[in-house]
Design a protein around this nucleic acid. Structure first.
Length: 291
DNA sequence: GGTAGACCTGGACGC
DNA sequence: GCGTCCAGGTCTACC
């Protein structure tokens, strides 16, 4: 069956897919020839399905192998809408960006939307996996998690959904350390999974909260393994652009752009984008660093 | 509030 | 093949 969804213009599926590295992390899969992508999701009904997403004029078409009941169709609509941020309006940012040569192409390229995972839990875990390691190791750790703990896709049992909080909560630290190769991140992931699974932490409610960014940031920083960089990254995914995810790459880029390659710190990165106010994270994200 | 050192993995490198 | 060094954010203890 197919489901059609429209997006607030301008919209470009390739632009969302290439917004950051998430598309390289299982259970996402990109078809590099067609530009389409797929994702295996674990619905609340326990059903595991593959969503294949392709561009359609003004939006996207989602193809699913099975026919789904109305409630699951609605669930898929909400999941895809969240993942691609279909309803967000960036016109205010585009107006500002049009005055800055380094961002002037943002509207024409329909940039701004950042690819999200189906659940915030998945995005928090993946963000922890990006910290203090190289990207290749992030891909490996994430792949291990998906393969070892995620539910298999019935039509192709070699492929799996991202594990649910309950599936990770049921394992132990030693397994995550030694078999999944998460290292010191293992207790962080386990604690997160158990607190979400028990209901102590309602992560998904943060998707639609009206909390100001500062309060939302405090909630994210309260999660073990989430520091300044990870919190800012997650805030971006949640559509709050008031903070910049300052990592070693950001320091290098800002150094080259404004300081002639001299060493810079967090303060210099923040100062460079401070005047963008509530859009500073997005201005940093989309900045043309090519020279 | 600021800082130093530990936490881990895996790739690069030298021997 | 083995040992060493290094990069990558966050946490904790300490000042």
């Amino acid at each position: 069956m197919q489901i059609t969804l429209s997006a607030t213009p301008p919209f470009s599926l390739p632009s969302v897919i290439r917004s950051h590295g998430w598309i390289q992390l299982a259970p996402f899969h990109e078809d590099e020839i067609t530009g389409d992508f797929s994702c295996i999701v674990h619905l609340e009904s326990k059903k595991v399905i593959e969503l294949r997403v392709q561009s359609e004029s003004g939006g996207i078409i989602v193809t699913i192998n099975d026919a789904l009941p109305a409630a699951e169709v609605q669930a898929v609509r909400e999941i895809i809408s969240w993942m691609l941020d279909l309803d967000r309006d960036f016109s205010t940012f585009y107006n500002l960006a049009s005055q800055e040569p380094k961002l002037a192409q943002a509207a024409a390229r329909a940039q701004g939307r950042i690819l999200r995972s189906p659940t915030l839990f998945e995005d928090v875990v993946k963000t922890i996996l990006t910290t203090n390691t190289l990207w290749a190791a992030t891909i490996r750790m994430n792949n291990n998690l998906v393969q070892q703990f995620g539910s298999p896709l019935p039509a192709d049992t070699t492929r799996h959904a991202f594990p649910t909080p309950g599936q990770l909560a049921a394992t132990n630290e030693e397994t995550l350390r030694l078999q999944t190769r998460l290292g010191y991140r293992a207790p962080y992931i386990l604690q997160l999974a158990r607190s979400v699974d028990s209901g102590e932490l309602d992560l998904e409610s943060l998707k639609k909260t009206n909390l100001p960014t500062s309060e939302l940031r405090k909630k994210l920083l309260a999660i073990k393994g989430i520091g300044d960089y990870a919190a800012a990254n997650l805030l971006m995914l949640l559509g709050h652009y008031d903070f910049i995810p300052v990592d070693s790459w950001a320091l290098k880029m800002v150094s080259n752009e404004w300081y002639g390659g001299a060493p810079v710190g967090r303060a210099e990165v923040e100062a460079a984008f401070e005047h963008w106010g509530q859009w500073q994270g997005l201005a940093y994200w989309l900045w043309d660093w090519s020279g």
